[in-house]
Amino acid sequence: MDYMVELDKESGILLFTITREERRNAINYNVMNGLREALDRALNEDVRILAITGKGDKAFCSGGDLSTFQSLQTEQEAYTMLSKMGEFLYELAVFPKPTVALINGTAVGGGCELAAACDYRIARTGAKIGFIQGGLAITTGWGGGTLLFERIEARLAFKMLSEAAVFRAEQLDDFGFIDRLHDRVGMEEARAFFTNEQSIDSHVLRAYKQMMIRKWQAGDLKSRMEKEIRACSVLWGKEAHHQAVAAFLSKNK
Results as ranks from 00 to 15, higher is better:
Glu239Thr: 03
Ala240Ile: 07
Ala115Phe: 10
Leu14Cys: 02
Ala51Asp: 07
Leu35Met: 14
Arg124Asn: 07
Val5Ser: 06
Ser223Val: 08
Phe95Pro: 00
Ser223Tyr: 05
Gly86Asn: 08
Thr140Ser: 15
Trp236Ser: 06
Lys222Ala: 13
Met187Leu: 15
Gly105His: 10
Arg184Ala: 11
Met225Gln: 11
Gly141Ala: 14
Cys232Met: 06
Arg230Lys: 13
Ala137Trp: 07
Arg48Lys: 15
Leu172Gly: 09
Arg121Gly: 02
Arg155Thr: 08
Glu153Ser: 12
Ala190Val: 08
Phe177Asp: 01
Gly12Ala: 04
Leu172Arg: 11
Lys84Ile: 06
Glu22Tyr: 14
Arg121Ile: 01
Asp179Tyr: 06
Gly141Phe: 12
Asp65Phe: 04
Ala190Gln: 03
Arg124Thr: 10
Gln217Met: 13
Tyr90Asn: 03
Thr17Ile: 08
Tyr79Lys: 09
Asn252Val: 13
His242Asn: 07
Asp173Ala: 10
Val31Thr: 13
Leu89Gln: 04
Met160Cys: 08
Arg151Thr: 05
Ile229Asn: 12
Ala231Thr: 15
Leu14Phe: 02
Leu161Gly: 00
Leu235Cys: 11
Glu170Asp: 10
Arg124Pro: 14
Leu89Glu: 06
Ile200Arg: 10
Met211Cys: 09
Arg168Phe: 08
Trp236Leu: 11
Lys58Trp: 11
Leu92Thr: 06
Phe167Ser: 08
Ile13Gly: 00
Gln171Ala: 05
Gly186His: 01
Ala123Thr: 03
Lys58Gln: 07
Leu72Gln: 03
Tyr3Thr: 03
Leu43Tyr: 05
Ile213Asp: 00
Pro98Arg: 10
Glu163Asn: 12
Leu114Val: 11
Asn25Gln: 02
Thr99Lys: 00
Gln171Met: 12
Asp173Val: 00
Trp236His: 04
Arg214Asp: 14
Glu6Phe: 02
Ser11Glu: 09
Leu156Ala: 06
Glu21Thr: 11
Ala123Cys: 13
Ser202Cys: 02
Phe88Tyr: 10
Ser199Ala: 12
Asn30Trp: 10
Asp220Ile: 04
Asn33Lys: 15
Ala157Pro: 13
Gly64Ile: 11
Ala93Val: 12
Ile103Glu: 00
Lys227Glu: 15
Arg180Tyr: 01
Cys232Tyr: 03
Glu45Lys: 15
Ala107Gly: 11
Thr106Arg: 12
Leu50Trp: 03
Gly141Gln: 08
Met85Glu: 14
His203Leu: 09
Gly186Ser: 14
Met160Ser: 05
Gly186Thr: 00
Ser62Tyr: 05
Ala240Trp: 03
Asp57Ile: 11
Lys253His: 10
Thr19Trp: 02
Gly56Cys: 15
Gln198Trp: 00
His242Phe: 05
Asn252His: 12
Leu147Glu: 03
Ile27Ala: 00
Arg20Glu: 07
Gly109Cys: 15
Leu235Ser: 13
Asp65Cys: 03
Gln133Met: 09
Arg155Val: 07
Arg41Gln: 14
Ala207Pro: 09
Asn25Cys: 08
Ala116Lys: 00
Thr106Glu: 15
Gly143Tyr: 05
Ala244Asn: 06
Met187Arg: 12
Glu77Thr: 02
Lys84Gln: 12
Trp142His: 09
Gly126His: 12
Val204Thr: 10
Thr80Gln: 13
Phe60Glu: 01
Leu221Met: 14
Leu43Ile: 03
Phe167Lys: 06
Glu87Ile: 07
Ile52Lys: 05
Gly56Asn: 14
Leu82His: 14
Ala127Lys: 01
Lys128Asp: 02
Ile13Trp: 01
Gly237His: 06
